[in-house]
Design a protein around this nucleic acid. Structure first.
Length: 370
DNA sequence: ATGAATGTGGCTAGATTAGG
DNA sequence: CCTAATCTAGCCACATTCAT
């Protein structure tokens, strides 16, 4: 305990390209030096911030990592591949930064596939190598020139002025929405007269609200990441939160453990990306569906039983560090476990298609969120 | 031809297992 | 204890296959 208390919070820098490049050069020099020591040739291991639960902490602001490290050693059996991939990622990033370009995870995957295909079998390996690179260099993915590709969309009372000069009014897109692009970085300017930001779990529900032009009735910005939030959507929400700190942010998710997990990812971030988590989190409120909503509005036939997996996820959420100070969230999930059932947002359609908008409006007016 | 069912892939988180 | 490697799960988009 005393050991942990002494550990300090660790954060990845948003360093500029030359700084990142010099960190990579520095590592490479140390690596080469280790090979040239007379009578004691050795391959220097890489030192990374540990992304294990033990090295994580959580406070009101969200998840963070402390400074415990581990060594990724080329000479240890089974570690060679992952050791190589981290270097490979750093090499690609070094080149990207040199020419001032950026690439998505997917592009980096194909890049490695085309040059060193025997080292990888799936994108997952490259993704974790990228996270390892962040943990070695202590700089953000963005500063490495890695873009987070996105599946999210945004609509409503938001005007986006591109750096180049193009202006998009997200309240005037007809029945379409504005895709959250991978490089929504610090260059755009945002203008808005909204009072709320609505984060919707499911695209189908999002589309319904777009169709009804819900943002005309309630002054809001509506966004969705279409399922589990990707980094780009989280980054946009974080940015909007900073631009418009007075706007309240609400999340509308299914009434199941995964719904809360989605809220937690927006609200607290994740341990895996703990070094960057503080750059993505924002104060999301849980609007619905919650226990009382489900019991009040969801017809009995629309409930389904919690699966083993749901219950595992629920228990893991209850035990997680980030929820320890959030009694209300824990209470909700406990009640869900007791009830043993779950329900989807679509279940509200039992009261007609217009009910969804009424439901959301009522919840906001009554300040019924946690 | 049309629309439903099925499969694949991309993204995320987390669980599991083997091994030190 | 720890990590690496591999799976699973949920979400969606998109493509393919299958039955009408």
């Amino acid at each position: 305990m005393a050991m942990e208390a002494r550990r300090s919070m660790c954060l990845a820098d948003d360093a500029d390209p030359s700084e990142v490049r010099s960190r990579i050069e520095c590592l490479m020099k140390l690596f080469l030096k280790s090979l040239m020591v007379e009578n004691d040739v050795a391959i220097k291991p890489l030192s990374l911030i540990s992304r294990s639960e033990r090295n994580a902490g959580a406070d009101e602001e969200g998840v963070y990592l402390m400074d415990a490290t581990y060594e990724k050693d080329f000479t240890v059996r089974n570690s060679g591949k992952s050791f190589f991939l981290v270097w490979k990622v750093m090499q690609i990033c070094y080149q990207l930064l040199g020419i001032g370009k950026q690439a998505t995870q997917r592009e980096i995957f194909y890049n490695i596939l085309s040059t060193s295909s025997s080292y990888i079998t799936s994108q997952n390996q490259v993704n974790s190598a990228i996270q390892d690179a962040v943990a070695v260099l202590l700089c953000t993915r963005r500063s490495l020139g890695i873009l987070a590709s996105s599946k999210g969309a945004v609509v409503g009372r938001l005007v986006i002025k591109e750096h180049g000069g193009d202006t998009v009014d997200c309240s005037n897109l007809g029945s379409s929405s504005y895709p959250i692009s991978a490089d929504m970085n610090m260059k755009q300017h945002f203008y808005s007269d909204a009072r709320y930001i609505l984060v919707i779990e499911k695209d189908a529900i999002f589309q319904r609200l777009v169709e009804e032009r819900f943002f005309l009735k309630v002054p809001c910005i509506i966004m969705t990441a279409k399922g589990f939030p990707d980094l780009a959507s989280r980054a946009l929400l974080h940015r909007l939160h900073q631009e418009f700190p007075s706007m309240l942010i609400f999340a509308l998710v299914d009434w199941n453990p995964a719904g809360l997990a989605i809220i937690c990812t927006y609200r607290f971030g994740s341990i895996r990306m703990g070094l960057e988590a503080p750059r993505y989190v924002c104060d999301v409120k849980w609007l619905g569906l919650r226990n009382r909503d489900a019991l009040t509005y969801v017809p009995a036939t629309a409930f389904t039983s919690l699966t083993d997996r749901d219950m595992t996820q629920a228990r893991s959420l209850l035990a997680s560090k980030m929820l320890q100070n959030h009694k209300q969230y824990k209470q909700e999930i406990l009640e869900m476990l007791t009830f043993g059932q779950k329900a989807e947002i679509e279940a509200l359609y039992a009261h007609g298609y217009e009910f969804l908008a009424k439901f959301i409006t009522k919840k906001i007016v009554r300040q019924d969120f946690i």
